[in-house]
Design a protein around this nucleic acid. Structure first.
Length: 946
RNA sequence: GCCCCGGUGGUGGAAUGGUAGACACGAAGGACUUAAAAUCCUUUGGCCUCACGGCUGUGCGGGUUCAAGUCCCGCCCGGGGUACCA
């Protein structure tokens, strides 16, 4: 092979220049990428005698900005595992697709009139092009796009199943609605144990006498996909409702627009029915503790009890939920959520005006205000009193917006002595505070002097009737027992997890397969699927405020109007991993054979930002499909790794205020300056290319510089990678300059996969040098392929087997950065040994191939192999090449290492002691003292205690 | 506030309780070159010393241990999650 000339970028003269080159990645990498594509090298079969391994990446939303170096990080890691598993003899499923519905394309459509599909497809093409250049081993025949009717047919299909099932709490699974109607026909609603909304009870006779519409209305309380008037997060700016995980601090996660609460008729998914199973399932998963913790908190299980309080002068009970039944003797008032059903009834005439104005005030208060003004206490007395069921004491009933309508019963018993929120409320309204729990070993004190409540569950009960003297935990149990035996309530469990609002008032999403008859929703027959997204004349709500689909012509089915909402972003992403198993199946979501073979995902890699959204919804979706006999496993993602964020490293220049002069970093403190972000492409090793800088923007054309030793040094900052900060590093540029293998290695070399870290292009030279060094092991000075068949030496074999061992161990624990380091050490050692032996290099090519597949394929070919290295056999290490006869013992005195001493590994401890004591250096460090003790750990260390 | 996860050279980072700083970048010096690029060699935690060598050192303060970056207790700082959830 002849040496070749390639353009390389010259930093000094700032031009591409031709130089003599050894490893020609620009030719070799595209060659193999084409070959893999043409040979369908990575096509996975749904039938195989091999064991399966399913490696999945969270599929991307194809944004207009394209991929930056942060995106492929996880894909590279998963690709390494995929290729590694293939070498181990697994049949590997490693697919990729696009989460193609989303707001940006729709916003763009609103602004420009371009159909979102056009924008989306363009972006997808760009993503694909960028991914192809990195050399991933995806099975592209299985690609899915959530906006493709061929795919969303099954999203709609699943929705129909959700509509046609209810959750039976007795069998603890979803069952067909037909089993429910069967029950109603013979038993009425009595004794049904379902996850359902409350409704008036009915008998079998009453059920059978109902009209179809009445029956449908009843059933709507049970369906897993149901339509109801619910309080939603309404974002006026985006013109749509948002799910809880799409809202943060009262602002939309996307765009940061204010969100208000609004009562709207919406589709919801009864995910709350699965709360306990979603919680329990976490135990079986190989996920990080922090991620499990996030999900646990989001599901928010709390054990407590419901207690009914009588109302003085009214034949009504007020039901509250508390996790502290032990503090029932410390209750001094009650608070209802402003939206509570009984507010009207409880309000006494003389308080009606005050209550009305408080209700009006809370209604106009935005979510944002409500959340940020937590410290501000507000509320209003209703004029009514409740009766403490254990003490018979009358206590005032308030309304306040610190009590939420959606949690528990929407009413609380306030224990100001032991709950900080109740304490703040009591102080504000001058309500009594009673101490009922006393910290161990302390005397009770006068609560009127307290500055804060005592919220801890540690302590002993006081002033509490029959539980006085008990520990808190014991008192809880005893109180629940008493309440249950008195028929006042029962122990219950509450979850924070709410049902998922499933309607969006948007255009660019899956249409619901739903039409309306007499105002009641009905599902389209499956034969009508997919229901395609219709054309509209504008991507905006109608003048009447209806969603964009209301603009579509003939948006009806057999004369009945079709649903005009669309599904949310998480609809299409909740079950995509199942579709990959059988992506081209036109007749079913996926076949039984496919799902029974692939089961679930063995390794899932993606960002932690999906912890409370996608990863909860997908688990729910999968459990539902499991219940109806579709999914093969209860949990979709066995092992999950959250790759860390790659942050940008911005470059900064300093303009002397009011001038067009720029001062170098080290001199900036002498001037009054303004910090300006500069595009990182104009900066190399923190040195600004001043010429390019002048050309960057017209206003900089006559920029002047105050230099340090002839150079302009830039400052830097680690922050989000973003266009507006000019710090986006895109992978194509790096592939162009260094090649895909170098980029792959470098992204892995940056640090542990899970950790966030700043991108710094400087370091990539290191992996680039490694790649060429590795190539040179196989080539002579003139780049002629030159590999010897001579027997390898012990030293060469030791290097080889040490590397195999380390890489295998590290891949198993997903520690890819240390793998790359081992490869570097290996190449350094073999270079020093001048090793070009086939028996050493050939196994290394296979071992390296998951990390740097292009160079590995080329060398594999040069070594004389016909097929792809992708299906070679992973080399195994042999311990016998690693055994040493001697060990360089570190000798420590009082734990401080002083010198080392080579001793045989099989030397008995007593002999080692003797040998060390005989060493003249030992004498020196003993300083004439007698060693008090000697610790000898064979093969590890010698420590002498003085 | 509560719950997680982190804190190691100039930088990214390595280290089953057993030689802290592997590997790499950067920097400095040198070789080759007309010059550059590429490549190679040397040095590179801090302090003291011409050197040999010594002291010190993994956010801070304690503790356990023959031995602590690693385990325990109490703080400080950074990142993430969550927040009137009763």
């Amino acid at each position: 092979m002849l040496p070749c000339h390639l353009p390389l970028f010259c930093y000094l003269c700032a031009h591409y220049i031709n130089i003599l080159m050894d490893y020609n990645f620009r030719e070799i990498e595209p060659k193999w990428q084409h070959r893999w594509s043409e040979d369908k090298t990575f096509r996975a079969d749904n039938q195989s005698s091999k064991p399966k391994y399913y490696v999945l990446d969270m599929f991307p939303y194809p944004s207009g900005a394209g991929l930056h170096v942060g995106h492929p990080l996880g894909y590279i890691a998963s690709d390494i595992v995929s290729r590694y598993k293939r070498l181990q003899g697994f049949n590997v499923l490693h697919p990729m697709g696009y989460d193609a519905y989303g707001l940006p394309a729709e916003q763009y459509a609103i602004q420009t009139g371009t159909h979102p599909e056009i924008t989306t497809n363009k972006n997808i093409d760009r993503y694909r092009e960028q991914m192809d250049k990195i050399g991933f081993s995806f099975d592209w025949e299985r690609e899915v796009r959530t906006c493709d009717p061929f795919y969303y047919k099954w999203t709609q299909w699943t929705f129909i199943q959700l509509f046609n099932h209810w959750y039976n709490k007795s069998s603890n699974k979803a069952e067909p609605v037909s089993s429910l109607t069967g029950y109603f026909e013979t038993n009425g609603s009595n004794g049904i144990n379902a996850a359902a909304d409350l409704h008036d009870p009915f008998t079998a006779a009453e059920w059978n006498a109902m009209t179809e519409k009445q029956q449908q209305e009843i059933l709507m309380n049970y369906r897993i996909a149901y339509l109801s008037d619910s309080w939603v997060n309404w974002c006026a700016e985006l013109g749509t409702v948002l799910a809880n995980d799409e809202v943060s601090n009262g602002l939309s996660v996307r765009g940061g627009h204010p969100v208000e609460r609004k009562l709207m008729r919406q589709w919801s998914l009864r995910i709350s029915a699965y709360a306990q199973r979603l919680l329990d399932g976490l135990d079986s998963l190989d996920w990080s503790d922090s991620l499990k913790e996030i999900q646990k908190n989001w599901i928010g299980r709390s054990e407590g009890c419901e207690v009914s309080f009588a109302i003085s002068g009214l034949n009504e009970k007020l039901k509250v939920f508390t996790t502290r039944p032990d503090t029932l003797f410390g209750v001094t008032f009650m608070v209802l959520a402003p939206e509570h059903d009984l507010v009207g009834m409880l309000t006494k005439d003389e308080y009606r005006d005050a209550i009305e104005s408080y209700l009006a005030w809370t209604k106009n208060r935005s979510e944002r205000e409500r959340m940020t003004e937590v410290k501000q206490v507000s509320g209003q007395f209703t004029g009514s009193y409740a009766v403490n069921p254990l003490t018979g004491q009358e206590i005032p009933v308030y309304i306040a917006d610190y009590v939420l309508t959606g949690y528990g019963t929407g009413a609380i018993m306030a224990v100001p002595g032991h709950d900080s929120r109740d304490f703040a409320f009591a102080r504000h309204f001058n309500l009594p505070v009673v101490q009922v729990v006393c910290r161990k070993g302390e005397e009770p004190s006068d609560p009127s002097g307290w500055l804060e409540s005592y919220d801890s569950k540690e302590g002993v009960m006081i002033n509490s009737g029959f539980i006085t003297g008990m520990e808190v935990k014991e008192a809880m149990r005893a109180t629940i027992d008493r309440i249950e035996s008195m028929g006042l309530g029962r122990g219950t469990i509450n979850f924070r997890l709410r049902d998922a609002i499933f309607s969006r008032q948007r255009y660019w999403g899956e249409p619901f397969p739903v039409y309306y008859k007499e105002g009641m929703p009905y599902m389209l027959p499956e034969t009508e699927l997919p229901l395609r997204l219709p054309a509209v004349n504008a991507y905006l709500p109608t003048a009447m405020g209806e969603p964009p689909l209301a603009r579509a012509e003939n948006w009806s089915y057999n004369g009945y109007p079709l649903e005009t909402n669309t599904m949310p972003g998480f609809a299409g992403s909740s079950g995509y991993y199942l579709r990959y198993m059988d992506a081209s199946n036109p007749d079913a979501y996926f076949s039984k054979e496919a799902v029974n073979y692939w089961r679930n995902v063995d390794l899932y890699i993606g960002g932690a930002e999906h912890a409370t959204g996608h990863l909860i919804y997908a688990r729910f979706w999968n459990k539902f499909l499991y219940d109806i006999g579709m999914a093969a496993e209860q949990e979709p993602f066995r092992k999950l790794i959250n790759q860390g964020m790659i942050q940008g490293r911005s470059s900064l220049v300093y303009r002397v205020t009011g001038t067009n002069k720029f001062v170098s970093l080290g001199l900036k403190d002498d001037y009054e300056i303004q910090e300006i972000h500069v595009d990182i492409s104009l900066v190399n090793n923190d040195i600004l290319d001043t010429e390019k800088f002048r050309q960057w923007r017209p206003d900089l054309a006559d920029a002047e510089f105050i230099l340090e030793d002839g150079k302009y040094h830039c400052g830097h900052e680690v922050e989000k990678m973003s266009k507006s900060l000019y710090n986006v590093q895109n992978p194509d540029d790096l592939v162009e300059r260094y090649g895909a293998d170098t980029l792959r290695l470098y992204e892995m070399f940056l640090g542990p996969l899970e950790q966030s870290k700043p991108w710094d292009t400087k370091g990539i030279e290191g992996t680039f040098r490694f790649i060429r060094k590795f190539w040179k092991l196989f080539h002579d000075r003139d780049n002629n392929f030159m590999v010897s068949d001579d027997a390898a030496t012990d030293a060469e074999l030791k290097t080889l087997h040490k590397t195999i061992k380390k890489v295998q161990e590290d891949v198993e624990r997903f520690s890819f950065n240390t793998c790359v380091a081992s490869f570097m050490i290996c190449a350094n050692e073999l270079t020093d040994l001048k090793c070009n032996k086939r028996s050493v290099l050939e196994p290394l090519v296979v071992l390296l191939s998951p990390f740097a597949p292009h160079i590995a394929e080329e060398l594999w070919l040069l070594l004389g192999h016909k097929g792809s290295v992708s299906f070679a056999c992973l080399p195994s290490f042999d311990e016998k090449y690693l055994v040493e006869s001697t060990f360089e013992y570190p000798v420590s005195f009082n734990g401080k290492m002083r010198f080392t001493m080579a001793l045989p590994l099989d030397m008995p401890v007593a002999e080692i002691e003797k040998a060390v004591l005989a060493n003249e250096k030992t004498l020196k460090y003993l300083e004439g003292k007698q060693p008090r003790k000697m610790i000898v750990v064979p093969g590890k260390i010698v420590n002498i205690v003085l």
